[in-house]
Every structure is written in structure tokens, then in C-alpha cells.
Amino acid sequence: MPAAAPGGRTDAAMEQIIDIVLLAFMVVVAIAMIRLRNLYAVVMLSGIYSLLSASMFVVLDAVDVAFTEAAVGAGIATVLMLGTLALTFREERPPKRRTPLLPLAVVVVTGAALVYGTLDMPHYGDPEAPIHQHVAPRYIADSPLEVGPPNMVTSVLASYRGYDTLGETTVIFTAGIAVLVLLSGVTRRRQRRRPARGDESREARR
């Protein structure tokens, strides 16, 4: 290999290999999640899936997204799901139907249509792709001067698109209120009801 470029080229090849392996892991974990019936294992696998996707975001140079996905997707979502399992069931009931052919066909056809749609897409990492030609260069060139923080994602999030972030906060607030309203009194009612009647089917499935 010539002395000028070897570093860059092996780096790119390495990145490509990591990319392929991580995405393959994600597919394996997703299929395992579909097949398993123990919901506890499924929730643990979904934490692993989120962590793999966070690693993927680091490889794809989106570090802010990687932080958020690791904290929110692998952390908070897993905790919420474990809490749900504690209040409901650990196991999924075995299926009554045999292999669901119609849904499988729907999924395969949709997937094939989407793959056909990707054939025209710009290739991975192409600097000439249309997405890099419009407003992005302006944010990259001007945001450190106009807004200040060296991190351009922060500038866009908090300044140029500050209203979006405000709307996002509203969504979180609404969801938080809704969760509180739905869950208030669940444990209280459970404790009151338990001594009254056993309901065998419910207890048996735990």
C-alpha cells in the first residue's frame, strides 16, 4: 500500500466491517426477540438491541444520538418495560394459530417494495447526496459563529429549531400526565382486590 493513504483507507475498511457486523448482530437480536416467549428475556434483549444501535450511531458519527439512545433506549425504556412486567405477566401465551402465512406474505411484499425503493438511493457515505446539498452546509459553516457552541447539533436543536424542542417538551409533559392518570391507584386497587377473589387463571400464568 502506498505511504500516502494507508491510514485513511484501512480506517474506512475497518469502519465498514464494524458497520456490517453490528447491523448483523441487530438482525439476530431482533429475530430472537420475535421468537422468544419469555417476556423477561425479550425485554433484556431489547436493551441489548438499543445498546447495539447506540454503538451503530457512534460508527455513523452521530455521537449525540448515541448518548441519547444509550440513556433513553437502553436505560429508561428497559426499566419501564421491567416495571410493566412486574405489574402484569412474565410469559406470553403459546400461539393458537399455526404459521401465520398472510402476515408473513404482507411483510415480505412490503419489504421487497422498500428494497426496490432503495435501489435509487445515494450510496452510504456519498458526499454528493442531495441531503448534504441544501441547508446542512449553512448550519455547518455558520452555526459556530452565529450561535456559539462548537457542537452543531446543539446549536440547531436549541436555537434554530428551538420551537421543535419546545413542542417536544410539551409531548413529554402530556405523556407524563397521561401515564400518571392511567396508573394512579393501580397498586391500591390491586391490594384491595387480592384477598377478595383469587382468579385461578390469572395466578396460574405467572
Binding site: A62, V65, T68, L80, R161, I172, A175
Partner: peptide, 16 residues
């Protein structure tokens, strides 16, 4: 940086 910004918002709305 723009997809990162969009997806940051989407992750937080997703958890909600």
C-alpha cells in the same frame, strides 16, 4: 447535523 437533531427529538418522543 440535521438528521441527528431530528432523531434526538424522535427518540425522546418515542420513549413518551
Amino acid at each position: 447535523p440535521l438528521p441527528s437533531v431530528l432523531i434526538l427529538t424522535a427518540i425522546v418522543v418515542g420513549i413518551a
